[in-house]
Structure formats: structure tokens, C-alpha cells
Simulated scan of single mutants.
Amino acid sequence: MKTLFLPAALAVVTQATLASGATPDFVSNRVNINQVNANVFEAIPRGATNTDRIWCAASEYAVRRLGADWRQSLYVERGYGRSVTTGRPTSVQFTLDPKDTGLAPRESGFSFQAGANVSIQLANTRCAEIPFRMD
């Protein structure tokens, strides 16, 4: 009786986990990336992390998953806040096209204030400071 129950319970838990969005769209250096909508994605650090990891992961996602050009700008859509895709307490949202989201671009720089922006190539230089590891 127990042997029949275990596989069924495991299947239910697996489906519930996948339905809840527990699997990130992309992972880079302990930062999960999830697409929020067609124009916005969020970087969700796992555990304590520095800002370099967030910029690095966002740049990697923009190029590898969204097909962005290295010269394109990466904009902070929303600074630190609760993740809308996972509920975790810390995330930063990014966009590649501020016109589509109504975002007013600000000065360039690595701050997490809405509108702050840098080129994807410059954001990717933050990866050089991080020892690379596959998650």
C-alpha cells in the first residue's frame, strides 16, 4: 500500500512545484532570473549577494535568453522590492525597452533606482569580479 502512495504523492508535489514557478527561467551565480511580462524580467538573489552578481546575471539573461545586443542598454525598471514571481523579499526588475514600460531613463550608473541604466557590455564586466560557478 505504501509503495503505491509514494509515487502518486511525489507526482503531485512535482506538479505543484512546477505550477508555482519554483523553477527559474535562468540562473547565473546564485541569482535567479524570471520573466515578469513581455517587457520586464527580475533578478532574484539567493541568499546574501552583492550588487555585482545582480548586474552580471541580468546582462547574461539579456544576451543569452532575450537575444539582446551587447551595446544595448539595460534599465532598472524597479529597484529593490519583493519578487512578483516568487515572493522572495529581494529582487530587482529590469527592462531593455523603457518606452514600452513607461519608464523615464535616468543617468547612467550601477544604482538600483528606477531608470538607471548601463550598456549590457558594461554590466557584464561585473561578472569578471565574481568567481564563476555553475549553479
Rank of each mutant, 00 (worst) to 15 (best):
T3W: 14
P7I: 14
L10H: 03
A11G: 12
V12Q: 04
V13W: 11
Q15S: 09
A16S: 14
T17M: 12
T17F: 12
L18P: 00
A19F: 10
A19N: 13
A22I: 02
A22F: 04
V31I: 14
V31R: 06
N32A: 14
V36Q: 01
V36M: 02
A38C: 02
A38L: 09
V40N: 01
F41L: 00
E42C: 08
I44Q: 11
R46T: 04
G47F: 08
G47N: 11
G47I: 01
T51Y: 09
T51C: 00
R53M: 02
I54Y: 09
I54L: 14
W55Y: 15
C56D: 09
S59F: 07
Y61A: 09
A62T: 08
V63P: 02
V63L: 00
G67M: 09
Q72V: 06
Y75R: 06
V76E: 04
R78L: 05
R78I: 04
G79V: 12
Y80T: 12
Y80H: 11
G81M: 10
S83C: 03
S83F: 07
V84S: 10
P89L: 09
P89Y: 12
S91L: 10
V92P: 01
T95S: 10
D97K: 05
D100V: 10
T101Y: 01
A104E: 15
S108N: 08
F112Q: 03
F112A: 03
G115N: 04
S119C: 11
Q121H: 08
N124H: 15
N124S: 14
N124T: 03
R126K: 15
D135F: 01
